[in-house]
């Protein structure tokens, strides 16, 4: 009897050990799932663009526009950014395609002479300046160097802003855990400095901080 009890106790203990380890392991795995899979959706709030624009349609073979046809430079060299709706109206004074987005765009903006309040993906703090003109004209960078693949997109992805700091994921970088801090895919100071250093523009604080 005593022997049987001992065996049962040992078996029960063995089972408890396995179960305890499983629970412990489950805690780790559950938290890893929460942290790496769920948390990124929680920390960043998506904000959709007011109009869905297809770069692939405009830059593709059918239309064949180049980047600078719309994102042009002023006479004094300034980058004009996203064109105003008056420029779009050159072709879209009325609906010329079949998509719902174009119809919405023409009805709500072109016909009403209204500008689109695009959500900015890359707003920097107020003490930081970024000049497209400098990078393209002086630095001789192609648009694709930074915006690679942009011309093949059919939709504008939503901007994702941190619920805490308010910075866009395009600024802070999509890498969630960046220890030690290394240049990644964002627009943080390390990212700018990394590219500048690689291209021989070291110690260039006032290039960005004005």
């Amino acid at each position: 009897m005593n022997t049987t009890d001992a065996i049962n106790r040992n078996a029960s203990k063995g089972t408890d050990d396995v179960r305890g380890k499983t629970i412990f392991f489950f805690g780790i795995v559950g938290m890893l799932f929460l942290g790496w899979i769920i948390f990124p959706f929680f920390i960043y709030a998506p904000v959709a663009q007011p109009v869905q624009f297809s770069h692939s349609t405009h830059a593709g073979d059918n239309v064949g526009l180049k980047c600078v046809d719309c994102h042009s430079y002023d006479k004094d060299g300034r980058f004009l950014g996203i064109p105003g709706t008056s420029k779009c109206a050159g072709c879209h004074s009325h609906t010329i395609g079949v998509s719902d987005e174009e119809k919405k765009f023409v009805d709500e903006y072109i016909l009403r002479h209204k500008e689109i309040r695009w959500v900015v993906y890359s707003s920097q703090p107020e003490n930081v300046y970024f000049s497209h003109a400098t990078h393209v004209k002086v630095g001789k960078l192609d648009c694709e160097t930074c915006h690679f693949g942009h011309e093949f997109t059919d939709k504008l992805r939503p901007a994702r802003f941190s619920r805490i700091s308010g910075y866009s994921i395009d600024v802070s970088g999509s890498t969630l855990l960046d220890i030690p801090s290394t240049p990644s895919t964002g627009m943080r100071m390390d990212d700018c400095a990394g590219c500048h250093n690689k291209r021989g523009h070291k110690e260039s604080c006032i290039d960005c901080h004005k």
Binding site: G20, K21, F24, F26, G27, I28, M31, L32
Partner: peptide, 9 residues
């Protein structure tokens, strides 16, 4: 154990 595992995770 669950809390301990979660804390480490």
């Amino acid at each position: 154990k669950l809390v301990g595992g979660s804390a480490i995770g």
